[in-house]
């Protein structure tokens, strides 16, 4: 997708010494990490640990108080970079009174898609989340799981190189969760890089690399196996307890 040769070598997302405070509360404290091309990077942590704040810093919606966030080698926030990733927010940001198709068309237009190309992409994205039969339903008639999938489809519309997904499988039944994961893995195999947050331990096992986040601090970054080896445990859950700073404070 038109990337310069120099951009090939830099990490897709490069976070350096990032801190974010809201008033007196420090939500993120000196976080540094890289997301490499073609991997699924999972941010694992309990709710309130700072995952969503970190996601918002990566997307450029929010700005860090200290440190830098770079995407494709360029410093965030930058308007032109917003075109290059697909984003799925934690809450389903959909227009309830509109149909799924109208929602998709709206967001597709914002990403510069038009005409037959737009309709083609809408079908393709809805195919992935298996919602093509429900295109003309108003979103208010959708179930929670369907809304999640529609949000995912919207993030896929403009075929971004990078997907940023905030809790993509929350509130989705196990069967559907598996099918979404199969799709995410397939997307990765086709070259899409994915950053996602989760608080479900067994999902973390499917990521290529995991960052453990707790109370705003990144306590460890490694492959699932690497984390297990380092902590001398045989599950991510136990590794999280050992590496995440012991018992909950």
């Amino acid at each position: 997708m038109g990337q310069s040769p120099a951009a090939e070598n830099v990490p897709l997302v490069e976070i350096r010494g990032v801190s974010r405070r809201f008033g007196a509360k420090t939500v993120l404290d000196d976080v540094s990490l890289n997301v490499e091309r073609g991997e699924i990077f999972g941010l694992l942590g309990p709710s309130g640990s700072g995952k969503t704040t970190l996601i918002k810093l990566i997307t450029g919606i929010d700005k860090a108080d200290e440190g830098t966030v770079r995407m494709f080698g360029e410093t965030m926030p930058k308007l032109s970079l917003l075109q290059r990733y697909g984003y799925m927010a934690q809450s389903d940001a959909l227009y309830q009174e509109l149909t799924a198709r109208e929602n998709l068309r709206f967001f597709a237009s914002l990403y510069g898609l038009a005409g037959s190309r737009r309709e083609e992409r809408i079908r393709a994205a809805m195919e992935i989340v298996d919602l093509n039969d429900h295109l003309n339903k108003t979103v208010s008639a959708y179930s929670g799981g369907m809304k999640r999938r529609l949000s995912l489809a919207i993030s896929l519309l403009h075929e971004p190189e990078l997907l940023i997904l905030d809790e993509p499988t929350v509130g989705i039944d196990p069967v559907l969760r598996r099918s979404i994961w199969e799709e995410l893995l397939a997307l990765r195999d086709r070259g899409t890089s994915i950053v996602l947050t989760t608080h479900v331990m067994d999902e973390a096992d499917k990521c290529d690399r995991i960052g453990l986040i707790r109370d705003g601090r990144l306590t460890a970054v490694d492959t699932p196996q690497g984390l297990k080896n380092r902590s001398g445990t045989d599950s991510i859950e136990q590794a999280f307890i050992v590496l995440g700073g012991g018992a909950p404070s």
Binding site: G60, L82, Q83, A89, A93, L94, Y111
Partner: peptide
């Protein structure tokens, strides 16, 4: 409040 503004602003809209 429904979060659509944030979603909107995560697109390249000015």
């Amino acid at each position: 409040t429904t979060g659509t503004l944030e979603r909107l602003l995560a697109t390249p809209i000015r």
